[in-house]
Each structure stands twice: as C-alpha cells, then as structure tokens.
Computed example of a mutant assay.
Amino acid sequence: MKKTMTLAALALAFVLAFAGAASANVGINEKFGLPIVVYGGDLSADEKAQVAESLDVAGEAEVEEIEVTGEDLVTYITDGDARARMYSSAKITRTEEGEGLVIEIATPDNITQVTTDMYANAMLTAGIENATVEVAAPKAVTGHSALVGIYKAYEVNGEQLDPERTDVANDELSVATELSEGGVEQEKVSELLTEIKKQIAEQNPATREDVEQIVEEQLSRLQIELSPEDRQLLVDLMDRIRQLDIDFSKWSTELEDLSNTIGDKIGTVVNDEGFWESVKQFFRDLANTVRGWFN
C-alpha cells in the first residue's frame, strides 16, 4: 500500500512537471541553436524512424539531423576502425553554463554496456560540459558509437574538441565497460572513475607513480578488487588523463556534482533496487501515456 501511494504521488508530481514544462515552452533557443539528433549511420529506414520516436524528435519545435559513420570514428579516435557499425544514436541540446550534463538513456534495454554516468564521465574528459543528452538504439548494442555522434554534434554546432581528449574519453569508456564486464557493478565503476579523477584534479599528480598511488587509495577506499591486468589498464588511463590540457580547478567542481549524483544512485539501489526499477518503468509507461494525450 505504501509503495502504491508513493507511486501515485510521484505520478502526480510528474504530470504537474510535464504540464509546467509545456506551458513554459519558449521555442527554439537562439543562443545555442537547434537540438541536434545524430543517427547511427548503419540504421535502416525503419530503425531510424524507431530511434526518432524514442528520442521524441516530433516533439521538438525544430531539430537538425545528421548521421555518424565509421569515418567519423577515425576522426575522433586514434586507431578507430572506419568499418565499425554505428547504431546507437543521440539527441543533444546545449544548455547554459553551470547546468552541467544531464544524460538519459531512452531505450535502456537496448544500451547494454554504457550507463548514463559512464557517458557523463567520458564527456567531461572530452571537454563537453553543459548539455542534455538522450541516447537510443533500436536493438541491443553496447552504446559506444553514441559518444562519437555526440562529438560530431558539437563540432557541427561550431565547437572545436581536442582530438587527444576525445581519444582518451573513448579509452575511458572502454576501460569502464571492461571493468564492469570483469565483475564490478556499473555504478561502482562510475564512482571509482569519478573519485580517481577528483583526486587528480585536487592533487595535481606530477608522475605516473603519483597516479598509481591515487588509484590504489581509491580502490582500497571503495573496496574494489581488480585483476593486475585491469589495475594496469586503469593506471594507464588515469596517467593519460593527468597529461591532458585540462583546467583541473574547474573540473573538480564538475566532478563533485557527478560524484554526488552517482552516490545518490548507489544509495537508492542499495535501499530497494527492485522497487526503483519498477518506478523507472512506471515513468516510461506514464510518459508514453501522457504523450498520447497530446497526439
């Protein structure tokens, strides 16, 4: 009964928020331009339409639509394979300074390896700071190609991303998914990466040995066990991050925000994982219902 009442209260809050957002619609943001939808270049026409529905493209006043291909992968990632298959897609809406990154996976059953926090961590490494990003795929995929699409969207918008940072960000995403496949919970992987990067930002380590010490301290603090091979991957990644041209004083605040978000999620899962999964599904169903009212 208590859970039913909680769901009802959440539903009411959602509907009120939806109505408020609709009444506050200000149209196209002329400061940042149109939202950009990046479709995986290997989608069929039917799959592309399915992704467009998942990303609610029809609900936007106007969008810019582009495609990301294996050729783009080569542009942003060292040793990228131009023959790579690109299915995961994204909608990117730039936001005001200080609003941070808001990531949503619109098709959670179809993005099998990359979590919202993994995307956020990698985007910060790449130099993307303030945006709302929605990711979707029409079938089960890992979700890696969406990150390349996000890079392309930013450059279409006139931003110039540092190719070394985008390459390291891709490496970070690969390490994150490898650690989770090795048995570490996905949220714990995101927490680990964020906390190590926070310490790099605060301590400004001068050597690889300093980075290795930070990694060991955070592994111990978070009680995470890794194989020697995975530890090496993690140290290699963080040493690359140490050497990037990043304003670490600014980065520290952004990472603190991300750390708090991840901590909240972990606490929620620990409290009642099954219940909150039902809440997420409830909201997905409710969103579809409310959207139907306006169609």
Rank of each mutant, 00 (worst) to 15 (best):
A21T: 12
Q218C: 05
L16N: 12
R165F: 06
A126D: 08
A176L: 06
I246G: 03
A61C: 11
I111W: 00
L101I: 08
M238F: 09
L173I: 09
I77M: 14
Q281I: 10
N157I: 07
N288H: 13
E65P: 01
P138E: 01
L43F: 03
V175C: 04
S180V: 03
E256Q: 13
S180H: 03
F283A: 06
D257C: 03
E164K: 15
V279F: 07
V26I: 14
M118H: 04
G149Q: 01
L237R: 01
G158Y: 05
I28R: 12
I224G: 04
H144Y: 09
Y119H: 01
E164H: 11
V133S: 02
A136P: 03
H144W: 00
M1E: 11
D171R: 15
T4R: 15
F283K: 14
E195T: 14
Q232A: 14
V175K: 01
G182S: 15
V235D: 04
A169I: 08
E191P: 05
V133C: 04
G59R: 15
A169Q: 08
V279S: 04
V290M: 10
T93N: 12
Y154G: 05
Q232P: 04
V37C: 06
T261D: 06
A131T: 08
Y39S: 03
V168I: 13
Y119R: 00
E217R: 14
E209V: 14
E191I: 06
F275S: 06
M123N: 07
Q243H: 08
T142K: 07
V215M: 05
E256T: 14
K265R: 15
Q281V: 13
L16V: 13
R231A: 12
S145V: 06
V102P: 00
A137S: 13
F18D: 09
L124H: 02
R208E: 11
I214K: 02
I262K: 01
R83S: 11
N288W: 09
S44A: 04
D257H: 12
A21F: 11
T112Q: 03
I214F: 05
T289Q: 12
S190C: 04
I241T: 12
I266T: 08
I246L: 14
V189D: 00
R165H: 07
Y151L: 10
G70P: 03
M5T: 13
T125Y: 08
D236A: 15
L147R: 00
L101M: 06
N121P: 05
E164Q: 15
N204E: 09
Q199D: 10
L43S: 01
D56S: 13
D46F: 00
V269D: 06
A11Q: 10
V211D: 03
G149R: 01
V114R: 01
V189R: 00
V63K: 05
E195F: 07
T78G: 12
E216H: 10
G149P: 01
E47I: 03
D109P: 06
E202D: 07
F32S: 06
S227A: 09
Q186H: 08
G127A: 12
D247R: 15
G149C: 04
L73E: 14
V141Y: 01
S145A: 15
T253E: 09
T4Y: 13
A126R: 07
A137W: 01
S190V: 02
P35T: 04
R221L: 09
K265N: 09
I214Q: 02
G143E: 01
Q223S: 11
L193P: 07
E191A: 14
G80C: 15
E209W: 08
A19Q: 14
V135E: 00
S88T: 12
N130L: 06
